[in-house]
């Protein structure tokens, strides 16, 4: 058995054992099933939601928000990171501005976003984009700055055009740092998604958690939390694989090696 399949087997075993232990514990005590539901009940409710098609609709709504917001934030972040990394004037203007706004947790912006954009899709997508943009910007900027002088003498002598330099030097030179920014931003994008959906929506996993909370349906809350966890995990793996393909000269750490 390879190292990799051994790791997977170990993880599946641990996960299954945890669920079984939880169920066994509940069978033993049988206390407050509404507040501390056993896995059997959580998975029952999840099955109901899957059969009714509600879960799929919520997953699609949430993934669309987080996906569009993530792409938007990542593109803006990389764009400004390259700009502030390679141009002094841009760093003076945008760099200073971003450093002022960056420390504000995006979740604190939720009430403002609701006032300005209502509870529609635009505000939610923008909130995810803001959450994703700053770490991607900062990592891109730092990545550009880590390209060593020795790598740049030849570039200066060749006097290549800006676009040629962008594609051949700045973007790939900063790529491993950009990749790190993109990886941490996956989780941040989901944080912002949750905050945005909890303020109100028509569909969405976090919105259902909030609804289930009001209806005292802890089983549904836990079920949807699990789905969110799986989605975030899969999204991280997806981004990792994409980066491995795009940046063959770098090593993309696995989640547990961070």
């Amino acid at each position: 058995m390879t190292q990799r399949s051994r790791t997977i087997l170990l993880r599946v075993t641990v996960a299954a054992a945890t669920v079984l232990l939880w169920q066994a514990l509940w069978n033993l005590i049988q206390w407050e099933a509404r507040l501390f539901p056993p896995p059997s009940r959580v998975f029952d409710t999840l099955g109901t939601d899957i059969r009714s098609g509600d879960l799929l609709a919520d997953v699609v709504a949430s993934l669309r928000r987080v996906g569009i917001g993530y792409l938007l934030g990542a593109l803006i972040g990389v764009f400004f990171g390259i700009l502030t990394g390679t141009r002094k004037w841009a760093d003076a203007v945008f760099g200073s501005l971003f450093q002022l706004v960056r420390p504000i947790p995006p979740i604190a912006m939720v009430p403002l976003v609701v006032l300005w954009f209502g509870i529609g899709e635009l505000g939610k997508v923008l909130l995810v984009a803001v959450g994703v943009m700053f770490p991607v910007w900062l990592n891109t900027h730092l990545g550009v700055n880590t390209i060593t002088k020795a790598h740049l003498y030849l570039v200066r002598s060749l006097r290549a055009g800006y676009w040629s330099q962008l594609w051949n030097i700045w973007l790939p030179g900063a790529a491993s740092s950009i990749a790190a920014g993109l990886r941490i931003s996956v989780a941040l994008g989901f944080y912002c998604l949750i905050a945005a959906e909890m303020t109100g929506a028509l569909r969405g996993l976090a919105y259902q958690i909030e609804l289930a909370h009001l209806a005292y349906r802890v089983d549904r809350m836990i079920g949807h939390m699990l789905v969110l966890g799986v989605l975030s995990f899969v999204a991280d793996g997806f981004v990792r694989l994409a980066l491995m393909r795009l940046l063959p000269w770098t090593v993309q750490p696995e989640r547990d090696e961070r």
Binding site: A150, H151, Y153, P172, A175
Partner: peptide, 8 residues
């Protein structure tokens, strides 16, 4: 210092 571009 090594002046090869690691990404190429």
């Amino acid at each position: 210092t090594d002046s090869t571009w690691p990404w190429k």
